[in-house]
Structure formats: C-alpha cells, structure tokens
Amino acid sequence: MMFPQLSDPTGNDSCLDLSTVCNRSANEDALELPTFSTAAKIRVIITFTLCAVSAVCNLMVLWAASNGGKRKSHVRILIMNLTVADLLVTFIVMPVDAVWNITVQWQAGDFTCRLLMFMKLVAMYSCAFVTVVISLDRQSAILNPLGISEAKQKSKVMLTVAWTMSVVLSLPQMFIFHNVTITVPENFTQCTTRGSFDQRWQETLYNMFTFVCLFLLPLIIMIFCYTRILIEISSRMARTNLRSRDVHLRRSHNNIPKARMRTLKMSIVIVTSFIVCWTPYYLLGLWYWLFPEEMEETVSHSLTHMLFIFGLFNACLDPITYGLFTIHLHQGLKRCQQTSSAHVELENNTCLMQMTCQSPQQHAASGGYNTQSEGLKDHKAKNASGSIVLVSKI
C-alpha cells in the first residue's frame, strides 16, 4: 500500500517486494525468506492491544454521538465520520497487519489480497480526508461566522467528496496487488505489487502519487486552514483591544464564542495528532522510494515497526480528544444511571402498591386501615425519596 512494511509487514522485507535484493540474493544462492522475528512478535502484541483500545474508545464515541439527540449538529456529524474512519483502521488495517506478521506469507487467496489492500487504503485515505474536512469546516466557522446555517449542508457535501475520493483513489490497489508464488527455496506466496509495473520508476511514481494524496496535500491544506484561522483570531484580538474592554470581557478571550473556540481547539488537537503520528512513517516511506538501497543499509526493521505502530496510535488519540473537548461520555453514563434509577423507583412503587392493596384485608378487623394506609403513604413517599437519594449517591 505504501512502502513494503505496509504491503508486506513481515519485518524482513520479502524479496517479492524488493526485487533488487531478491535478484542479488538469488545470484548468490543465498535467498532468505522472511520469518516471524522478535520485532514482528512485539509489533503483533502492540497492534492487537491498540486494536482493542481503539475499538472500545471509538465505539463509545460513536454511541455517544449517535445518541446525542434527534437533531445532530454538523460538528457531531463530522466527529461521527472521523470515528467511522478510525474504526476502519481499527478493524481492517490493524488486524490485517497483525495476522500477516504472524503468517509471514499471504494465505488468504488472490481476491482477498486485492480486496483488503483496497480497503486498507480506503481506511487511510478516509482518515486523512475527513481530517481535512474538519479543518475546512473550522476555517469557515471562524472566517464566516454568519454562515452557520449553511455549514451543515457544506459539511455534508465535503464529506461525500471525501469518502468518494477515498474509494476512487484506492481502486488501483485492486489491480496492482495480487498473489505471487515462488518455489525456490520453497513454496512461498505473498500479496505484492511485483510484476504490475514494467519499470521501477513507474511503481515509484505511483507511490509518490499516493504519498501526495494521502499525506502531503492534506498536510498543506490543514496548515493553510489553521494559518488563516490564526491570522483571523489575531486580527480580531487586535480590533477588540482597540474597542471597549467591557465588550472584550463579555466574550471569550479572542472575541469568539466559547463553544466555537472549544471546537476549534479540538480540531487543532486532532490535526496535530494526525501529523505527529504519521509524519515519521511517511517520511521513511519517501526515503525508501527515492533511495531504497541506502535506506535498507541505514534503517533497522525494528524502527519501521515502531514508526508504523506510532502511526496507528492516532486512531486511539482521536476518541480521547472527542471526550475531552466535545462529547462528554460521562453524560451517556449518567443517562444509563438515570434509566437504572427509574427502573428501581418503578419497582419500589409497584411493591408499595401491592402492599396497599393487601392492607384492607389484613387490617379491616382491627379498624386500623386508615391509619395504616396513611402510614403506608408516608412510607411510600419516604422510600421513593430514599431511592432517589441512594441513586444520586451512586
């Protein structure tokens, strides 16, 4: 998908991907097949751990966002879309990478090879493009605050374009990846691009195109958006300082509503985490495409494992960011507690009603019905209020 560790994560770089290394080794009769190395084992453990954490966190955020009310704001819709993109990374990229490291060679067939390589790139593109949409939306919200009524429609259009581009740009994966099997020194099958390009420069060109669309272009757009936002905020602060200080104190510290400022901070953290997590790995990939032999001699396979895992960590950071800035997950838990308290109170009331219905038969002879009934009413009220207190303490 990107450079060999994404298309062949075995850690020893299958010769099916590195044709130069493979030919040299074959001429020297010293061809070595990749193995499940110690670095790969550590990578598998960490990847499965990240997969579990990311799945729990992102599913909680998706549940909280989808249950946030009938009318969802466009910011919430953006968050849900990025959460879905993170879940694609969680349930496709992470498990495929971990299992492929364990099996070393590809054992899922040619069609699955093509399909999963396509889905992996869709997941990666969607994360990048939805992050770009969030940046564009925040730019529009700050630079054109009066256009809030059109923001939801614009975000829907941008999201549609983002997902469509993710699918379209990933389609070549279905054609360039395929199963290749060698018989010397033994039967070994790998899902690779070997044989799909006549010249090495053609594969380098395709990889560079993927690099530009997947990382470089989104990075430029995000930097451009937040630079404009920073300039706008600075100019507003300057204008506010020239006006009455009272007006300045009635608004947030930069004359922007606090809710919008909180969302802006959230989006900045999301973009920063994306850049910080993936930049080292993409730069390593760029180095490999331009100077493969030099990189092979300089960079250890353990480092490539570490950088890829660091990139996957971004899928875990996003839901944490949502929880801190926008979606308060404790509100969802509080709703669950309120539902539980309602059930407890309903059960208490039902028991008291049954007791009240039985009391005439039990106390008619003693003439104590009225007094006992009033006592039961008081007891009922005390129980009901007591249950509320207990639940509130919980």
Rank of each mutant, 00 (worst) to 15 (best):
T204L: 05
Q5T: 06
N187W: 03
S340G: 08
I102H: 09
E296A: 13
T263V: 06
D29S: 14
Y288Q: 07
V344L: 12
L159I: 07
I45S: 13
G367C: 07
A52K: 08
A108Y: 08
F274S: 03
M222D: 01
T131A: 05
K70R: 14
A64K: 01
Y288I: 04
V133H: 00
I223Q: 09
E347C: 12
S166F: 00
G332D: 05
L284V: 03
L136A: 06
V133Q: 01
L146T: 13
A381G: 09
A364E: 11
T189G: 09
A141P: 00
H305W: 03
V269A: 14
S126P: 02
W278C: 02
N58Q: 09
L116R: 00
C357W: 08
R243E: 10
M174D: 02
T210M: 08
V75Q: 01
C277M: 05
K41D: 02
K41Y: 04
Q362G: 04
L264W: 00
G285V: 00
P360N: 09
A64I: 00
Y369A: 07
N27V: 07
R239A: 15
N370Q: 14
S385F: 04
S196W: 00
G285N: 07
L214K: 02
T304F: 02
T10I: 01
F211S: 08
V157F: 13
F48K: 05
A365C: 11
R243C: 09
N81Y: 01
A384H: 11
M261L: 14
R43Y: 06
D13L: 12
L18A: 10
V130R: 01
N187Q: 13
L146W: 02
P4M: 04
T189A: 10
V44W: 03
A141C: 10
R24F: 03
A381Q: 15
E374V: 07
V89K: 00
L88W: 01
D318W: 01
V93Y: 00
H343E: 08
G332M: 08
L216Q: 06
K382M: 10
K258Q: 13
H248E: 09
E203F: 09
M208G: 10
M353G: 09
M295L: 15
A98W: 00
M117I: 01
